[in-house]
Computed example of a mutant assay.
Amino acid sequence: MRKKQSVVGLTVSYLLLIVISVIAIYPVLWITLASFRPGTALYSPHFLPDHFSLVHYKELFTTSTFPYGTWYLNTLKIATFSMILSTFLVTLGMYSLSRFRFKGRQTALTLMLVLGMFPSFMSLTAIYIILMQINLLDTHTAIVLVYSCGAVLGGFIVKGFFDTIPRSLDEAARIDGAGHMKIFTRIILPLSRPMLTYVALTSFVGPWMDFIFARLVLRTKEKWTVAVGMWDLVSRYQDSNFTLFAAGAVLIAIPITLLFFFLQRFLVQGLTSGANKG
């Protein structure tokens, strides 16, 4: 009887996983197939295209009124620099808050927690005015700085991770003559690969997919990101090329997918494997 119940439970679990997989995979498969479908219509009576065509991918990089290649490079540049700067600021800032005790530390933590509770778009007006006053409006530098500095407010998970690393490792390193920076680079960072991977991924995906802030700051069409440009493509009622939009969406997913596959091996590594002496 117990064996029969376990078989039924296992069957239900697999059926549920299959349903969830279909729900997750179907939209991706549909948008990918739509990118190879000739024409501009969103709807098609057939799931598979009558014949596969690369005309939409070619059109993305050859149409003068739709500088997709420029937008793609702009987004890649912004996301890459934001990822590097965000990871640097978050790890250094959260390490200091985790390991050091100084006046105002608790106040800083409380302030960061309170600010992090508010939606980011509430600060758009203030950020816009500040960028306009310092002549950084309509620049990629402004986008990178705001994304990177804003990432620090969400660094509590990194601080919590640093808190779990035994302080005995720091003390052993100090006995051997190591300073704070050497402890950080030689001990903390190697043990924090999974967390650094998480921070890098989220810091890249956020700017890559963001639309609201990029649409507010970037005014020149040549400086737009892919999200703003793709919105402009389908927002024009008289020229809504949804199959072209599908091709652009497929290309948008490629860097995120490659970055995930490249970094995922660090997520399964041991955190403190071989860290203790002896």
Score class of each variant (00 low, 15 high):
His140Trp: 11
Thr141Gln: 12
Leu145Tyr: 03
Val146Cys: 10
Ser148Ile: 05
Cys149Glu: 03
Gly150Ser: 10
Leu153Asp: 02
Gly160Val: 06
Phe161Arg: 11
Asp163Glu: 11
Thr164Met: 12
Ile165Tyr: 00
Pro166Tyr: 05
Pro166Trp: 06
Pro166Gly: 05
Arg167Leu: 10
Ser168Gln: 14
Ser168Gly: 14
Asp170Asn: 02
Glu171His: 02
Glu171Ser: 03
Asp176Met: 02
Asp176Cys: 01
Asp176Asn: 03
Gly179Ser: 11
Phe184Glu: 10
Thr185Gln: 08
Thr185Met: 07
Thr185Ser: 14
Pro190Glu: 03
Leu191Lys: 01
Ser192Ile: 01
Pro194Ala: 10
Met195Gly: 07
Tyr198Gln: 10
Val199Gln: 08
Thr202Gly: 15
Ser203Val: 04
Phe204Val: 06
Trp208Tyr: 15
Phe211Met: 04
Ile212Ala: 11
Phe213Leu: 15
Ala214Asn: 13
Ala214Tyr: 02
Arg215Asp: 09
Arg215Tyr: 09
Val217Lys: 06
Leu218Glu: 02
Thr220Tyr: 05
Thr220Val: 06
Lys221Gln: 11
Lys221Pro: 06
Lys223Pro: 03
Thr225Ala: 07
Ala227Ser: 15
Val234Phe: 03
Val234Asp: 07
Arg236Tyr: 04
Gln238Tyr: 13
Gln238Asp: 15
Asp239Met: 00
Asp239Lys: 01
Asp239Arg: 02
Asn241Trp: 05
Asn241His: 15
